[in-house]
C-alpha cells in the first residue's frame, strides 16, 4: 500500500492509474455480462473514435457535456458544488424555444443570436436562483440544484404536452418543427454544430478570465478565505450569483442547441444525462477549464460508444451510465486523501 500511495502522489500517474483501473473495470463488466471482453472493448473504442462518422457523433455528444462541465467548474471556483446542469439545460431550451415561437420565421442571422440569448438567459435564471438561495440564506446549492433539475424537466413536459403542443403531431408531445432560421449551422455534413465551437470558446474565455483577470483573482481569494476577500471589497453574494448565472447560461445554450440541431423541435428527453456527465468531467479535470475540453470529448466518446455496444452486444444504453459511475468511483478512490495517511 505504501508503494502504491507513493505512486499516486504524482497527478500524472494518478491519471494513468485511473485509466488502467477503468479499462480493467470495463473488461470485467463485459466479461460478467457474458461477452468477449477484449473484442467488445475494441468495438467500444472504434464506436467512439474509429472513423469520421464515429468521431463526429462523439463530438455531438461532447458538446452538451462540455457546456455542462463548465457550468460545474465555474461555481467550483467559489467552492460551490452545483449539480444543476440538466435543469439549466432544460430551462434554457424552454426559454430559447419561447423566443423562436414568439418570433416565428426569421432569417438565421437575426434569429440565431436572439434564440441563443433567450436560452442563455433562461439557463442563467435557473442557475442564479440556486445561487441566490445560497448567497442570501445559505440553502445548500447541491440540494437545491438537484431538485431544480426535476422541476425544469417537468416544466418542459408541461409545455410540450400543453400550450406548445403541435396538434399535427398526432399525439406525440412536441412543438412543431423549428423554422429553418432557428437551426444552428452544422459542419462537414455531420451533426457537429456551432454549439461545439461556442463551448470551446467559452472554455478558453473562462480560462483567461479566471486565471488572468482581477475578477478571477477575486474568486480565488474569496474561495480560500471569505473574510479576507470581503475585506478586500469583493462582494461574495454578487459573485455567487455571477458564477451560478454564467454557468447556467452555458448549460442553457447546450439545451437550445440540442433542441435545435438534434431534435429539430422542443420535446422531452433532451438530455441523456449530460448534466451529470458534465459534473463528472469537471471533477476528472480538477475543475480546470482547458483540461475539461479533451475530457469532455472522451466522455462524449463513452456515451457515443454505448450505441455500438447496443448494436454489437445488445447491451442496453444504461451500460454507459454504469461505466460512468465506475469511472467516478475509481477517480475518487485514486484521488482521495488516503495517501496522506500512507506516506509520511
Amino acid at each position: 500500500m505504501k508503494g502504491l500511495a507513493a505512486i499516486v502522489q504524482h497527478s500524472s500517474s494518478r491519471g494513468a492509474l485511473s485509466a488502467l483501473l477503468f479499462t480493467l473495470a470495463c473488461l470485467g463488466f463485459f466479461w460478467l455480462n457474458g461477452h468477449q471482453p477484449v473484442a467488445l472493448f475494441r468495438e467500444m473504442v472504434l464506436g467512439a473514435f474509429g472513423d469520421g462518422y464515429a468521431l463526429s457523433e462523439t463530438l455531438v455528444k461532447a458538446t452538451p457535456i462540455l457546456f455542462c462541465a463548465l457550468a460545474v467548474a465555474l461555481p467550483a471556483r467559489l467552492g460551490l458544488i452545483s449539480v444543476g446542469g440538466d435543469g439549466q439545460l432544460y430551462f434554457g431550451a424552454l426559454t430559447g424555444t419561447a423566443v423562436i415561437l414568439a418570433l416565428g420565421d426569421l432569417s438565421a442571422p437575426v434569429m440565431l443570436p436572439l434564440m441563443l440569448l433567450g436560452a442563455a438567459a433562461g439557463g442563467a435564471l435557473w442557475g442564479a436562483l440556486a445561487g441566490a438561495l445560497r448567497a442570501r440564506i445559505e440553502v445548500n446549492e447541491t440540494i437545491s440544484t438537484l431538485l431544480l433539475n426535476y422541476i425544469a424537466v417537468l416544466l418542459v413536459d408541461y409545455a410540450v404536452h400543453g400550450p406548445w403542443k403541435d396538434q399535427s403531431n398526432l399525439g406525440w408531445p412536441a412543438t412543431s418543427p423549428f423554422p429553418a432560421g432557428a437551426i444552428l449551422p452544422t459542419f462537414f455534413d455531420t451533426r457537429v454544430h456551432l454549439g461545439l465551437l461556442l463551448a470551446v470558446i467559452a472554455a478558453v474565455l473562462l480560462y483567461i478570465f479566471a486565471s488572468r483577470s482581477r475578477w478571477g483573482l477575486g474568486l480565488t481569494l474569496l474561495r480560500s478565505n471569505q473574510r479576507v476577500g470581503r475585506g478586500a471589497g469583493i462582494n461574495y453574494p454578487l459573485n455567487v450569483l455571477l458564477v451560478m448565472g454564467i454557468g447556467g447560461a452555458l448549460a442553457g445554450l447546450a439545451g437550445i442547441a440540442e433542441a435545435s440541431v438534434i431534435q429539430g423541435r422542443l420535446q422531452g428527453g433532451l438530455s441523456a444525462g449530460y448534466g451529470i456527465s458534465g459534473f463528472l468531467v469537471a471533477w476528472l479535470a480538477g475543475q480546470k477549464f482547458l483540461l475539461i475540453i479533451p475530457l469532455a470529448v472522451l466522455m462524449g466518446g463513452l456515451q457515443a460508444s454505448a450505441d455500438s455496444l447496443q448494436l454489437f452486444a445488445q447491451m442496453p444504453s444504461s451500460s454507459a451510465v454504469i461505466l460512468q459511475g465506475i469511472l467516478f468511483a475509481i477517480v475518487l478512490a485514486v484521488g482521495g486523501r488516503w495517501r496522506e495517511r500512507m506516506v509520511p
Binding site: P316, A320, V321, Q324, G325
Partner: peptide, 27 residues
C-alpha cells in the same frame, strides 16, 4: 469506502453512488 477509507469528497462520492445505482437498476 470512498468517503471514509479513501477520504474522497462526500458530495462527489454520493453522486458516484447515485450514478452507479441509477445505471445498475436501469440495466
Amino acid at each position: 469506502l470512498l468517503s471514509l477509507y479513501f477520504g474522497a469528497n462526500q458530495i462527489a462520492s454520493g453522486l458516484a453512488v447515485l450514478i452507479l445505482g441509477a445505471g445498475l437498476s436501469a440495466f
